[in-house]
């Protein structure tokens, strides 16, 4: 395959970035998208040009480290992670635009690499159950109805990649935040902190500069794990309860 790649290059956090166009040929349909970039980088190194910086780690769709805006779609045209996207999803001769996640709370570090530490701070603000090591009761002490366990699991599948934010016109991180609120709120262990959690996580979400949710749904459509939008309804319901009862 021959492709034209328009790739965002930016030397550092404060440098002005721009698109640079690269022609690549000899791309095989079986290559992953990131392997295609590896091949281009090897060529750039041979030519004496600094390779394109991009994040990736597990390359099996679970760590959440990779994430590129590919021709306007977070993680590209398929609902998967960038590392699990293969070149057979593109056609010979195509022009592909490659950008970093675009959102103020995710500043660019270099080229396609962004800083997503805002997500860690949202979790630190309340995305946990307060139980110290050693103080746990016997695991079977609290049965969990399968329905709740299954819904908690669906929400817990979030890999924290940030595609939801990149896809959202408001750069909202509501799907990410709501997934954690739902995961812990569905479980009996999560009840004691259920309402304080939603308030503190939302405050942190807003403090980081993420936008509000206006029910567009791009987040769920881009989510490689298909986290459903109804987790945001759960978050809203928990928030209403918290505000009404002052908890």
């Amino acid at each position: 395959m021959k492709l034209t790649l328009k790739i965002w290059r930016q030397d550092g956090p404060n440098a002005k970035g721009d698109f640079v166009t690269y022609q690549v040929d000899d791309i095989l349909p079986d290559m992953s998208f990131l392997e295609m970039l590896d091949v281009l980088n090897e060529r750039l190194i041979a030519e004496g040009t600094e390779p394109i910086a991009f994040d990736s780690d597990c390359r099996e769709g679970i760590c959440g480290m990779c994430g590129l805006m590919i021709s306007g779609y977070a993680h590209g045209p398929k609902q998967t992670t960038t590392c699990q996207l293969h070149m057979r999803s593109f056609s010979d001769g195509e022009t592909i635009t490659i950008e970093p996640w675009r959102a103020d709370p995710f500043p660019v570090i270099r080229d396609l690499v962004v800083d997503r530490s805002a997500f860690d701070r949202i979790i630190a603000s309340g995305g946990f159950i307060s139980v110290n090591t050693g103080s746990a009761p016997e695991a079977h002490a609290a049965p969990v109805p399968k329905e709740n366990a299954d819904r908690a699991f669906v929400a817990a599948e979030c890999i924290g990649c940030g595609a939801c934010v990149a896809a959202c016109p408001n750069a909202s991180a509501m799907l990410f935040t709501a997934a954690k609120v739902t995961h812990l709120g569905e479980l009996p262990q999560g009840q004691p902190e259920r309402y304080s959690r939603v308030v503190s996580m939302l405050n942190q979400h807003d403090a980081e500069g993420f936008g509000g949710c206006t029910n567009i749904g791009e987040c769920s459509a881009a989510c490689p794990k298909g986290i459903p939008q109804d987790v945001i309804s759960t978050l809203n319901a928990d928030l209403r309860h918290a505000l009404r009862t002052g908890r």
């Binding site: 159950i129 139980v131 090591t133 746990a136 695991a139 609290a142 049965p143 399968k146 908690a152 699991f153």
Partner: peptide, 14 residues
């Protein structure tokens, strides 16, 4: 297992 369940790890259930 006790510790992880208390943290909210969603293990498979019957």
């Amino acid at each position: 297992i006790d510790q992880c369940v208390a943290q909210g790890v969603p293990f498979a259930r019957e």
